[in-house]
Design a protein around this nucleic acid. Structure first.
Length: 271
DNA sequence: ACTTCGACCTGTTGGC
DNA sequence: TGCCAACAGGTCGAAG
């Protein structure tokens, strides 16, 4: 579920509920996420106040007096603020309890997510320090992408999904952005001209902004527990549409595999 | 420095 | 209906 738009929507959705709230308790039901949830997390967090919640890539950064809690939602994670008396369900692994008896609850069926504590500058943390640019920031430009692609023979789709180049472009939006830009996902990154990179950069920003705009709907549907985001799904041009007609030219959408991920594209519109 | 691939998990879906 | 394989929105880290 979580690509950058969902993570950003989550951040915005919980920010006002948790900032300036004091933590009174932490309940860890399952510590085996991607990396173990810190053993003494309850001891570490109790009594601290969350001063802000920021996002870097798909990581959420909860700032407190003595450090930062890093949260990644992996493939299936979600965060919700619920009343403390709402019973935890099967995959509700961590509760952060606040002084007003609300709870920040992490749910993650596949457990590819993470919750880590760091006392250093979080941007210097091992997992964050080598991340690429933010796709919606001004420094994500055609020139940047073009320069980064020199000598890179990897396919452009895998290239834009590489978080060391640019963060937050997941499989759905990589497919969608390449369609909008008219670029075939298999082209070697180094073979794209600067103007085509400009089209791609523009498409990535557009797709992510649109998705954030409809992210609220996506999130609400998801957290309600009925899975797929109905609203956003209707905006998809290629993802999940194998064999269906291209919305621009009618040619059946193709499905291939790149690096064990599904790539959908129009053989005619994308060259 | 770059590329490929296995690994981590559970839940859902589609074919037989 | 049951069973099994394939697949799912991520990304790290080892090995080549």
């Amino acid at each position: 579920m979580p690509e950058l738009p969902e993570v950003e929507t989550t951040r915005r959705g919980i920010a006002s509920c948790i900032t300036n709230r004091q933590i009174t308790d932490v309940i860890v039901r399952q510590r085996n996420l991607r990396w173990p949830v810190p053993f003494r997390l309850r001891k570490t967090l109790a009594g601290q106040t969350i001063s802000s919640i920021q996002r870097r890539g798909k990581y959420l950064l909860l700032s407190m007096q003595s450090g930062t809690l890093l949260i990644h939602l992996g493939m299936s994670g979600s965060l919700r603020v619920v009343p403390a008396n709402l019973p935890a369900e099967k995959h509700d692994h961590v509760d952060i309890v606040f002084d007003n008896h609300s709870v920040l609850r992490l749910r993650d069926p596949r457990r590819f997510g993470a919750m880590l504590w760091t006392q250093q500058n979080p941007l210097q943390h091992k997992l964050l320090k080598d991340l690429g640019v933010e796709p919606l920031a001004k420094d994500f430009t055609a020139e940047y992408l073009f320069n980064a692609a020199r000598k890179r023979k990897v396919a452009i789709k895998q290239f834009i999904m590489d978080s060391h180049i640019v963060v937050g472009v997941g499989n759905i939006y990589a497919n969608e952005a390449l369609f909008l830009a008219g670029i075939r996902p298999t082209i070697a990154a180094k073979n794209l001209s600067l103007p085509r990179m400009q089209q791609l950069v523009t498409a990535i920003k557009l797709v992510l902004k649109d998705a954030i705009r409809s992210g609220g709907t996506t999130l609400r549907d998801f957290t309600r527990g009925d899975g797929r985001p109905g609203y956003f799904r209707q905006q998809l041009n290629v993802y999940g549409r194998e064999g269906d007609p291209c919305k621009r030219c009618g040619t059946p959408i193709k499905l291939i595999r790149q690096g064990q991920r599904a790539s959908y594209y129009c053989h005619r519109c994308q060259r």
